[in-house]
Amino acid sequence: MLEARLAQAAVLKKTLDAIKELVTDANFDCSDGGISLQAMDNSHVALVSLLLRADGFEPYRCDRNLALGINLNSLSKVLRSAQNEDIITLKAADDPDNLSLTFESQNQDRISEYEMKLMDIDQEHLGIPETAYAAVITMPAAEFQRICRDLSGISESVTIDASKDGVKFASAGDIGNGSVTLKQTHNPEEPALSTSIELSESVTLTFSLKYLVNFTKATPLAGAVTLQMSNDVPLLVEYKMEGGYLRYYLAPKIQD
């Protein structure tokens, strides 16, 4: 059986908000290491990989591996009934038909109990090769969100060019063109507000902004975002949170 108690409902609510538009149904894979999810969007262009480590829950118990097949829209509806500060407990039996969710207010004067029907999802687990990326860019998550939003007004695509001079996001469309260049900065007081660029070689890749804008729905989960790129491979966008991460992979646009 699974029993996982999470101190802040907000973490799960924000996580759902960040993935439910890309993925409709997914298995939440529960093991003694924690709860993970890996799913592609319908077009097979983007992939979401979520990990909520066991140590992010208190307590966490999972006797044997379980795949909880969940409709993310349904889970999102149920989580709407939880206040951000509520304590959430997830429970499932071995070979479960339902997931039980309990929301307790901080001072335990209100307890809400929901049961959600589970579904069978036949989902392949993808092999994502370990990659030593040529460019690793860490920047404020809000900055990345703003750049993607602003450039999506210009074009459907953005070309990200990482070089020793900085990282340049450039778009060209019918109405004209625009770009934003970020230089490396160092803010020791507020590391989350710094931009760092680690580079072993220059990288230039083009991506659909529709997906990137979608990824930035994870902005409330983390102060910083990390973009990892190598030429001719998918982009990895990572939001690290306490007790886990939310990663997105995006296939590049290639010259026809």
């Binding site: 097979h44 262009v45 092999g127 994502i128 296939a251 646009k253």
Partner: peptide, 14 residues
């Protein structure tokens, strides 16, 4: 002109 690639070209089992 650029074309959207698919993750299946990069990840096994996709």
């Amino acid at each position: 002109k650029s074309k959207q690639s698919s993750l299946s070209s990069f990840f096994s089992g996709a």
